[in-house]
Design a protein around this nucleic acid. Structure first.
Lengths: 226, 226
DNA sequence: TGTTCATAATAGCAATACTATTATTTAAAA
DNA sequence: TTTTAAATAATAGTATTGCTATTATGAACA
């Protein structure tokens, strides 16, 4: 099943492209597992190196620090979602149906057939849910945004905003609705699992159906078509 | 203007109640200023102690670590918002009008007349916007939630959910809409200032009018009353 | 007047976030 | 096949962070 996909990410995110070498791929693979396991705060390059049988200094030759590694992983995730949306909406013209597919992809991107063996999309999804906002809630946000470090997220927002505007050209907040759908999808999965007082949906096993239904309710109601 | 308000917070948040001593109040005051200035990542107790002319060890006798201090500040903020909502909706019965006031309070809580001299509500609002989600995006979230560390946020969510249900008893997602309004309010202020591609609203000076209008549009449209 | 309590001052230690240096392996070029 | 370059491993080291312990000072109070 390993099709030859290469997720394209901003060069400024890394010092050496991890997708080019086996050590690089190993860093990606194990960092996903380890961040999920211990959380971003307790995660560091020494533990990562130990776990993958390499050295701290070697990891540092790929990523400047753990913030950049997180940003890389999060960007990877959104680029992956964007790619899945493109695949799933191919040949579909009805914007209404496109938005349905976008929402479906948002909550279930992690369950799609894995095409890249060194990335466990399902665990990566958990990381984005739990740690994703830390990638841009930083003092250097303006500088990093101006350098294009958040392009994958920005582009996806633009893409979904276009579908929204197609569906309802008079809707005044297409970008806000787009980014709100992303945030809501992740937040309410997190809430359902950890802070149930903050939501009304439940998750059984890996069934995100209620989250998906809620997003559809919100999106189509806001857009005045339902 | 200093009315004798005491914001009531969960005892588990601190080791010693900072509201009880002048050193404690100083810790609150200066931590707000310093976190805003350098960001949560670069903030630590040594710098805080230095800035306020005290010692690291003294700060540690009030808060277990910087996570707990952040949680304290965030809880303080939400309790303050909750208090303001209660004040502003006193004697108002129409749930529709209540929701208007809630949204207004959410975006402008920081501009209200400051009643507690050692807390700069306006700066605290910036901290909650920029660092707030880090308070509950942690590995220990389940344990801390079960100990009631997020009660202020949970209670506010419940309060607003009740108003929503009053307004539209058939609406299936009152808690989700409530928490989404909180998150959206803060996110889109942050986006407008730092990641403008992710929103459609603009902020001029300290005028959050467009954010407020958007929240009203979303809330009332979703609830089917507009 | 003595006792208790909070804070200040200082020190110290283990872990973190990096950087530098050298040695070894691998892999491509001549 | 040898040379050379590049990537990685091994090791060490430094500055900062996160936190604890010890003692001294001063205020409060009984």
């Amino acid at each position: 099943m390993a099709i030859g996909i290469k997720i394209s990410l901003h060069e400024g995110l890394y010092l050496r492209d991890p997708q080019e070498t086996s050590l690089g791929k190993n860093i990606i693979k194990h960092s996903i597992i380890l961040i999920d396991e211990v959380g971003l705060e307790a995660f560091n390059f020494k533990k990562l190196a130990k776990q993958m049988g390499s050295t701290e200094a070697s990891v540092y030759r790929y990523f400047e620090n753990k913030h950049m590694l997180l940003l890389y992983l999060v960007s990877w995730y959104w680029e992956w979602v964007s790619f899945m949306i493109d695949m799933n909406t191919m040949n579909i013209n009805d914007p209404r149906q496109k938005l349905h597919i976008i929402i479906d992809t948002l909550v279930s991107a992690s369950r799609e057939n894995p095409a890249i063996d060194y990335v466990n999309e399902s665990i990566l999804h958990r990381i984005v849910i739990a740690e994703g906002t830390k990638a841009y809630h930083i003092k250097e946000v303006d500088k990093e945004n101006s350098e294009g470090f958040f392009l994958n997220y920005n582009n996806l927002s633009e893409k979904v905003a276009n579908v929204i505007s197609e569906l309802n050209p008079n809707f005044p907040y297409p970008h806000a609705l787009a980014s709100n759908l992303f945030e809501m999808a992740n937040n309410h999965i997190y809430f359902a699992l950890h802070l149930p007082e903050l939501t009304d949906v439940k998750i059984k096993g890996d069934n995100y159906k209620e989250v998906q239904e809620m997003l559809e309710y919100f999106a189509f109601k806001i857009l005045g078509c339902k």
